[in-house]
Design a protein around this nucleic acid. Sequence first.
DNA 1: GTTCGCACCTGAGCGC
DNA 2: TGCGCTCAGGTGCGAA
Length: 292
Amino acid sequence: MPELPEVEVVRRGLANWVAGRTVADVQVLHPRAVRRQPAGPADFTARLTGTTLGAAQRRGKYLWVPLAGPGPEAGGFSLIGHLGMSGQLLVQDPSVPDETHLRVRLRFTDGGRELRFVDQRTFGGLAVEEAEDGDPEGTPVSIAHIARDPLDRRFDDEAFVRALRAKRTTVKRALLDQTLISGVGNIYADEALWRAKLHFERPTATLTHAQGALLLAHAREVMNAALAVGGTSFDSLYVNVNGESGYFSRDLDAYGREGEPCGRCATPIRRAAWMNRSSYFCPRCQRIPRPR
DNA sequence: GTTCGCACCTGAGCGC
DNA sequence: TGCGCTCAGGTGCGAA
């Protein structure tokens, strides 16, 4: 389940393996994988073929690669991607057999390793899109509304805490709101809340400034820790561009640990159904807020 | 304008 | 063995 640290690992892999290479040929094997391309798969293929890939960028869980040449029309466009729930961008030797859920393949003019987009559940996808006018980072138009992430040097901590406290919602919902803070998914939301000793249903309006700042610090800390070991992996659905898994799942304190003792107080971690998914929390350290 | 709930999607695991 | 159900969850969109 790729969240910010996992996507950053993939971004670094793309920067190392595909930057500066020219696309010789594009194969779309599943149209849903390019559903965000308004004019369809043929347009996606046409816009990408012959272009040279630039250095991969990231905002939250979105990745994009600026495109250059061959015609002037390629400038100002980027290949944008989201891994969704189960997406993988793999740099594979052409002799490696196709993966079962291979959706898009890019071959390069140098005849070397190809870039494959593999996605079991097809929640993710790729598209070629125009960048925002005058944006030096070449941010694609469709993700201009996505907030910066806590690992971004330009993330404004004070503005985040103010906006968090001004929300009329609950704290976990706010953490998953990508227009407020990007890159946080279900796993790291639960981990940050456990570290901050906050229940997931705590109303954001009742948080003190210090609690908001502490929550942000923990979110940043847990994502940095995950990034240091290559991300979180529970199964083969998350891997880096070379198909290798991360190790952070060994260090999770709450997520997926139902019934196991809390690392602080030994109370069994509880799982609660929440918005058609799960929230893991310590019922002692993370007290349920009293109804107001 | 903001918040909320649901559909989308596939495969693993489980009970019958 | 095979069928049906549940679960996993990020995003976008329509409803409230």
